[in-house]
Computed example of a mutant assay.
Amino acid sequence: MIDSKAKTLTPKNLIFALSTIHALFTFGALLFTIIVFMIADKVVLEFAKDKSIFVYIVPIVSMISYFGSNFFFNKQLANIVQSKSLKDKLGPYLKACVVRFTFLEGAAILSTIAYSLNNHIFYLVISLFLILYIFKLRPTKKKVMSDLKLTLADQQFFQKEHWQTK
């Protein structure tokens, strides 16, 4: 018989998982952008030569992903904060963060692909700004506690190194 005990999500595990996922998203998009930039033959600076549909699609998708990810995250956060126990808040918070990172990384990769097709610096700049924003969203204990609006007892519990179930 296989022991299928699910590992409980603790504050320590949450911070580790969020940090790992965030690093993978950030450095994956950054590495992809650097590789595409290094492979590119030339860099185009003039808009007159670029008659691609990407001139319209990339900024629109980038803005939608920026505002949409923030809207989705805040909406999910409002639902999470209503939960009474800390244990019930951690899983949904992790999912909300992953979805937020995914929206932004998808737009950054689209912008990098548009750069690889057209070699226009405009797309590369958008991609780099999105990657910088993903980097800015780096999860910390303080940010997680602030986002979840923890009570004083939950904050003290969250600060403990090991989380014990009742």
Rank of each mutant, 00 (worst) to 15 (best):
L9G: 04
T10L: 10
P11A: 12
K12R: 15
K12G: 04
K12F: 01
L14E: 05
L14V: 02
L18N: 09
L18T: 02
S19G: 09
S19L: 09
T20L: 12
I21Q: 04
I21E: 00
I21G: 01
H22G: 00
H22S: 02
H22Q: 04
H22N: 02
H22W: 13
A23G: 02
A23L: 14
A23Q: 04
F25H: 13
T26Y: 13
F27V: 11
G28R: 06
G28Y: 08
A29P: 00
L30E: 03
L31M: 12
L31F: 15
F32G: 14
F32I: 15
T33N: 13
T33I: 08
T33R: 05
I34F: 10
I34D: 04
I34G: 02
I34Y: 05
V36Q: 12
F37K: 12
M38V: 05
M38G: 02
I39H: 11
I39K: 15
A40V: 03
D41T: 14
K42Q: 14
K42W: 01
V43Y: 14
V44N: 07
V44H: 09
L45V: 14
E46L: 11
F47R: 12
K49H: 10
K49V: 04
K49L: 10
K49D: 13
D50W: 09
D50N: 14
K51N: 15
K51Q: 12
S52G: 09
S52W: 00
I53A: 15
F54H: 02
F54S: 06
F54K: 00
F54M: 10
F54E: 07
F54W: 12
V55K: 14
Y56S: 06
Y56D: 00
V58H: 00
P59W: 00
P59V: 03
I60H: 05
I60Q: 10
I60A: 14
V61Y: 06
S62A: 14
S62R: 04
M63G: 13
Y66A: 08
Y66H: 10
F67L: 15
F67A: 12
G68K: 03
S69A: 15
N70F: 10
F71Q: 11
F71A: 07
F71L: 11
F72Y: 15
F72T: 07
N74D: 13
K75C: 04
K75D: 07
K75P: 02
Q76R: 13
Q76S: 11
Q76Y: 03
L77K: 12
L77S: 02
N79W: 10
N79S: 07
I80T: 01
V81Q: 15
V81C: 03
V81L: 05
V81W: 01
Q82D: 14
Q82I: 09
S83H: 14
S83Q: 09
S83V: 00
K84R: 12
K84D: 13
K84N: 12
K84P: 01
S85M: 01
S85P: 04
S85D: 05
S85C: 00
S85V: 01
S85T: 11
D88Q: 11
K89F: 03
K89G: 06
L90K: 14
Y93I: 02
Y93F: 13
L94A: 11
K95C: 07
K95N: 15
K95D: 08
A96K: 08
A96E: 08
A96I: 08
V99W: 04
V99A: 13
R100T: 03
